[in-house]
């Protein structure tokens, strides 16, 4: 052993090897936060990519179910608009939820694709690594909630990422966990919006084609000023391929809560635990 190397070894044993004791470098992605004075356009608008992303994180049969649901709702709307042509007294769709029952999933998907998220005085972007000159940059999957108000506000804007859970479950356990979590996501009173088992994928062409056709039919028959027209337009243009804006490992699941459940994150955690065993790699804002 060279003298310099031996000295370094002794020093290392005596004082501790700095490289072994350095805190681990947080893995990406990160939220880069900028404080702005000028107003910025908001994001997370209804869009076709978000529709496909949402269907990529719901049970495969969801596409067909929404297709049938939309077709039935549109038929009811047509019959209601033209009562003279129909003898039966079809009830009108009673709410937006009748047309788009998976709106919490669509809402979450739109937020996932919404970077940069802007609000009064702040802009937050999803980045793979922090720029050397970044003023504030926080790891997305931090073990602890950021203590400062700026970090909390950033996570609130990027809420779908900011409150999601990253789980690891190997092998068969992962398949069972995925099935249970996606079943939980369909419960109307549940807290789960989306469950991803991959960071990209493609949707069933035939089902998607049928859904797009019915969305176009709905657009033609629903009032132009009806709420949700933008989502119907997005459904009509949904691409077959979807992609998360970050890489997911092979044993990982990425679970996003509903916007309406952000004050009930304990319930969200409980739903995750009930679904099965997994190692929690990260979660924000706990």
């Amino acid at each position: 052993m060279p003298r310099r190397g031996a000295a370094a070894f002794v020093q290392c044993v005596a004082l501790g090897c700095a490289t072994h004791h350095a805190p681990p470098v947080p893995a990406g992605p990160f939220l880069a936060i900028e404080q702005r004075t000028a107003p910025l356009p908001a994001s997370s608008a209804p869009n076709a990519a978000a529709v496909s992303l949402a269907f990529g994180a719901l049970p495969p049969e969801t596409l067909g179910r929404v297709h049938r649901h939309l077709a039935e709702a549109t038929t009811r709307a047509v019959r209601r608009a033209l009562p003279a042509l129909f003898l039966d007294d079809e009830p009108a769709p009673s709410s937006y939820a009748d047309v788009l029952p998976d709106i919490p999933a669509l809402t979450a998907a739109a937020n996932l694709l919404g970077s940069p998220w802007n609000a009064e005085g702040i802009s937050v972007a999803l980045v793979p690594r922090c720029a050397p000159n970044a003023s504030t940059c926080i790891p997305l999957f931090a073990p602890e909630e950021p203590a400062d108000a700026l970090g909390r506000r950033a996570r609130a804007l990027a809420w779908a990422f900011g409150h999601a859970a990253l789980l690891r479950a190997p092998g068969d356990a992962r398949a069972r966990l995925l099935e249970e979590l996606r079943r939980a996501a369909l419960r109307s009173s549940g807290t789960i919006a989306l469950v991803f088992d991959a960071d990209h994928g493609t949707l069933d062409d035939a089902e998607l084609g049928g859904l797009e056709a019915d969305a176009r039919r709905a657009l033609a028959h629903w009032p132009a000023d009806a709420p949700g027209q933008a989502w119907l337009g997005a459904l009509a243009a949904a691409p077959g391929a979807w992609r998360l804006p970050f890489a997911l490992g092979p044993d990982e699941l990425f679970v996003v809560p509903r916007l309406s459940a952000l004050a009930r994150l304990r319930d969200f955690d409980a739903e995750l635990a009930r679904a099965g065993n997994s190692e929690r790699l990260g979660s924000a804002a706990r």
């Binding site: 609130a156 916007l259 004050a263 009930r264």
Partner: peptide, 24 residues
């Protein structure tokens, strides 16, 4: 409507529209 007792509220309106608010 749910309040976490700290700085977050969330819930639904009209049976489908979701909301959440975070205190600065």
């Amino acid at each position: 409507f749910d309040f976490d007792g700290a700085d977050t509220v969330s819930g639904t309106l009209q049976g489908w529209a979701e909301f959440s608010a975070t205190r600065r």
